[in-house]
Design a protein around this nucleic acid. Structure first.
Lengths: 341, 341
DNA sequence: AACAAATATGGAAACGTTTCCAAATTTAAA
DNA sequence: TTTAAATTTGGAAACGTTTCCATATTTGTT
């Protein structure tokens, strides 16, 4: 295998200095058009490609982003994919890092100490983890969070939970539902906070009295979803509770499982709406009415926000969150309430 | 922010030369226990961590693996996750790269030219893509493929399609099914090839005559799955075809969609088995009988195979494929055939 | 105690870039 | 033309390691 072509080879071939070659590669303006062309020609002839490791070493820029999330949740896998596609356009690569529930801060710090990334895309389970926030505060590269407001961090990219939930509840109310359960994660995370607020506002603006007991909070897991469903079960069986809106797809699986075990069917026994669409949501029988978010747009926004922070560090922390709108897709998991007491 | 601690600082603090510090870090045997301890102590005091970029630059080893697959398929996202977890244990990072259908070889080459990886995990749609194979042949780092036999590449990691399909067909035959359709991808890819061979052998060993028309091949997409299902539809409606085994989860979605449109229900109108388990497969109504493969084990095997190739280049191409066993999970999507003509 | 062999150590060179500064060249102004 | 200013260029230094070789030290043998 022949020796790797370096910048020196290019310089010699083009009859210029290495600094000039570097300027040609990096779009530096201090170079005449003619020499630049000559160098680009030599590069093509020799088949030269810059060694990124050497570039990073010297320039302290790495053209790499680290993606920290629990990618066993398919939604994050999709976001990772879309982010990677967008990053690729900007010449960045994406390092995938899985995180669990614990010790996230240390994992990120130790990753950054060794490996070099210019920025981080981060999805964390909680917003108010004191330890975590302290570690995050010490990280010196920009971080863009997904659907979380972390006090110590600048605004990230968020789904429009408020609008989505408002719209969905409006829809259920218009179908005649009066008791609607909201199942979500911890009250302290943005999606739940926004969701609850939209839920309440929807009842208020429709002049319907709401029952706070139907706001259920738990962990973002199917087990927790199933447990919360079971708390609601008696009221469903009594016919008092007629609809459920679930803010998280993992929890929704738990709701489905709970229904299965209780031998309940939607939409006859209860109307169902969940957050997050997927091919299977349409293939469930009956197909599910869902709140759909455009994952590709999320990926693009995340990447562009992050790259903006990298290129313009002075804007870091000064921007408003990017809010991604959703689509409400009505299928067949909700039906009108016929009789009202 | 204070200047980064380098190996020189450590050397000065410990009163040794930089080469000695390097030896201490890298587990080089040519160092006395006492100096090594002294250096490790200094490292701890100063909070030194080696700069990986500089290490890579000099050593030409990158401690990075590139993962090329279509990660919008959740199964690859999961494999990516499991691989990353395993790689992490070995001090490697994972770069995620999405690939489409076209120009895969060039994408990989150009990624490797700039970015530096020590190895590649690869999932490609086809095995016999001449252009692609030619590009792959020129890649000088080890490649481990997932479920494909690429002639030019050494053995990768494969699911035990033969055993799985054999077991599943046996099961369907034991339920009295005599006409069973097999839906899979191109005949030239390993899973389909093995699947068909296992399918035929199962009929043979059970002394049942098989109908070659029920072996259906298409693309690994839900659209293709739906199209193939529609080809089978007349025979299903005539009651001649009573079971389908689907080798690919994407195609299976198409089958489900086709059934939905034809207003057919499983297991009453047809028995159904698919490859690939997921939380939702259990939550479908009725829950699906599936062939489950242990993704964590696949990830581990992939990584260990690849790292072995990196550490022992002389074994590259000399090893047998690693075959990952599967579990057959019987749920409720198949029912016995009552009447036989 | 003397010497050879084995082990341990220091530090220059190299990895392939970018950055910076000084110098050369071109352009513009007088 | 001359001179000043602007532009372009070359290449040394630096980024932080590992590797290699020469040298120093320790260990073992007689």
């Amino acid at each position: 295998m022949s020796r790797k072509i370096t910048i020196k080879d290019v310089a010699k071939h083009a009859g210029v200095g290495i600094g000039t070659v570097s300027r040609a590669i990096n779009g530096n303006p201090n170079i005449s058009t003619s020499t630049k062309e000559k160098i680009l020609e030599s590069i093509k002839i020799l088949g030269y490609t810059p060694n990124n490791v050497a570039q990073s070493m010297r320039s302290q820029r790495y053209k790499n982003i680290a993606f920290f999330a629990d990618i066993s949740n398919p939604i994050f896998a999709q976001i990772a994919k879309e982010s990677q596609i967008e990053l690729d356009k900007h010449g960045y690569t994406l390092s995938l890092c899985n995180i669990g529930e614990k010790d996230i801060g240390n994992k990120i710090s130790s990753f950054l100490e060794g490996r070099k990334s210019d920025g981080i895309i981060l999805s964390i389970p909680k917003e108010d983890d004191f330890e975590l926030n302290r570690s995050l505060a010490n990280i010196k590269v920009p971080i863009v969070t997904i659907n979380r407001d972390v006090p110590i961090l600048p605004a990230g990219v968020v789904t429009d939970y408020y609008f989505s939930v408002n719209e969905a509840i409006d829809y259920l109310l218009s179908l005649g539902h009066r008791n609607i359960a909201l199942i979500g994660g911890d009250k302290k995370i943005r999606p739940t906070r926004e969701g609850i607020s939209a839920y309440k506002d929807a009842f208020l603006s429709n002049g319907v009295k709401l029952n706070n007991n139907y706001i259920k909070n738990g962990k973002l897991s199917s087990e927790s979803g199933e447990a919360l469903f079971n708390e609601l079960l008696p009221d469903i069986q009594k016919g008092e509770l007629t609809a459920i809106l679930c803010l998280n797809n993992q929890m929704f699986y738990g709701v489905l499982r709970g229904m299965r075990k209780a031998k309940l069917k939607y939409p006859d026994d209860i109307s169902l709406i969940t957050f997050e669409d997927s091919e299977l949501m349409e293939l469930l029988d009956p197909p599910l009415t869902v709140i759909h978010r455009p994952i590709d747009e999320m990926g693009k926004s995340i990447v562009n926000t992050l790259i903006n922070y990298i290129d313009n560090p002075e804007t870091y922390g000064k921007l408003e969150p990017v809010v991604i709108p959703t689509n409400f897709i009505i299928r067949e998991s909700c039906k009108p309430v016929s009789i009202k007491k």
